[in-house]
Structure formats: C-alpha cells, structure tokens
C-alpha cells in the first residue's frame, strides 16, 4: 500500500503516572474509514488529540505523509490538511453557523489571501463553507447564531467545520453522539462517502454504525491497541469479545 496519510509509530502519552496512550501503532490511508473503538477511558480522545497536535507525544513518532510532525503546534496540523471534530462541541458560539465554517475554510489559504479579503463578499472560502454546510445538512441554518443550535445540529456543524478546509485526513471524535436516528444514518452514509477521497478516523460507540461503515477497526483498551483489522476480523476475535464486546453486549 502507498505511504499512509497519517501514521503513528509507538505513540505514547503520559499524564504524570498515567499512561493514557501506550505505544500505539496506527496508519490512516486515503480511501479508508478507520474506526477506533474501545471502552470509556481507553485513550481514544487522547489519541485524537495527539494526532491533531492538541497534545504533544511523550514518546513515539507521528508521521503526516511520511514527514515527522510530532512537535508541530495544532494550527500547523490544520493547515497541512488534518481536519478534526471535537467530542465536546467546541464552536464559536457568538458567530453565525456560516461564519464558523467560513473561518475554518479560510484557515488554509495563505495569509495574504486569507486576511485582507472583505468578509461579506463572495469568494472561494464562502463557497467551500456553503458546500460543507449543504453536505452535512445544515444549509438551512447557515444564518443562525451557533450558540442557538440544538445538540444534534452542533454535531453537524462540527463536521462541517472539519470538512470546510478541504482536509485529506479527518479525525472525528464521536461525531454522531446525541444525534437523532435519521440524522445519524444520513451522516453515517456521508462518512462512508467521505472515506472515498479522505483518510477518515472515526471514534464511535455505536457498534452497528462501526461495522456498517468501517473498512478497518482498531480496538483500544487501557491506552493500548488490543486488536487491529477488518471488521470481520474484529467481530470474530476472541480477545476483543472478552475485553470489550462482551461488556457492550
């Protein structure tokens, strides 16, 4: 297979005595939807934060298109095409939905193209913003203030913000949590569609969704990778059933 869009090698993060992420190996490829599952406290969100530069690794390597990026600040990840959503909704509440997405979209332009432009004029980032909003089904709420959205709509907005900058790697931390069943199904289909030309990492608790959309599944327990493989392989792995699926069932 080609060079992974993003690859973690022995990635480790300690908080004092606690090892939240312990020697994790993981490769995200364009064209693949890679689900990461595991019980609460398994280190999934810490892993997302490591892969997006919110946290620095204590040890191990992090490669983006083959280049070492472990010491980058978070904003460089976003500029280099790593989009992410947050588990706890994290948007610019006083601004409109469209402005949230538009800021995300313009972040990847070069500074000279990014800052002088007048915001109300039609230009490329606005189109990218509107396209992202349509894609997640929030087009109708574009002019609402983000702080007034419902919980489910905020989840959609999170995904739109991650999408707007045209990333190659998408890190989605429980994007479907708290959504109604219809929206959830629609967005699961969208994720599948996105995986065609993105490297998508999906953290998700709903096993039905995971096994429906994932091309590859990594199971984490206590900060370690317990198992890694196709959904079929994971479904049948005895270790996973014991450690995790057993609890969930």
């Amino acid at each position: 297979m080609s060079v992974a869009a993003m690859e973690a090698i022995g990635l480790t993060r300690r908080f004092g005595g606690l090892v939240a992420v312990n020697e994790v190996n993981l490769a995200l490829h364009v064209g693949e939807l890679h689900a990461v599952i595991g019980p609460n406290g398994a280190g999934k969100s810490t892993l997302t934060n490591l892969l997006s530069g919110e946290l620095r690794p204590s040890a191990g390597k992090l490669l983006l298109h083959g280049a070492e990026v472990g010491d980058w600040p978070s904003w460089r990840f976003a500029r280099a095409g790593v989009g992410r959503s947050f588990q706890r909704t994290n948007v610019l509440k006083p601004m409109t939905v469209r402005e949230n997405v538009r800021l995300a979209a313009q972040a990847r332009l070069t500074p000279l193209r990014r800052y002088p432009a007048v915001a109300s004029e039609e230009h490329a980032p606005s189109e990218a913003a509107d396209a992202a909003l349509e894609r997640v089904g929030l087009g109708g709420a574009a002019h609402r203030t983000a702080g007034t959205l419902s919980h489910g709509q905020l989840r959609q907005l999170e995904i739109a913000m991650a999408l707007a900058a045209g990333p190659t790697v998408l890190l989605l931390d429980e994007p479907l949590a708290g959504m109604g069943p219809e929206e959830s199904e629609r967005l699961a289909l969208l994720l599948k569609e996105l995986a065609a030309d993105h490297a998508v990492m999906l953290i998700e608790h709903d096993m039905d969704v995971v096994f429906a959309v994932a091309d590859r599944v990594t199971v984490m327990v206590d900060g370690r990778v317990l198992e890694n493989g196709t959904p079929e392989h994971i479904r049948n792995a005895a270790s996973v059933r014991d450690a995790y699926l057993g609890h969930a069932a």
Partner: peptide, 12 residues
Amino acid sequence: ANEHRMRSMGFD
C-alpha cells in the same frame, strides 16, 4: 469567541 478552536482550525 474561542481561541482554542481557532488554533485547531489552523490559525496561528
């Protein structure tokens, strides 16, 4: 509005 989010969106 949200400095942390701006950083993670790619703003230095």
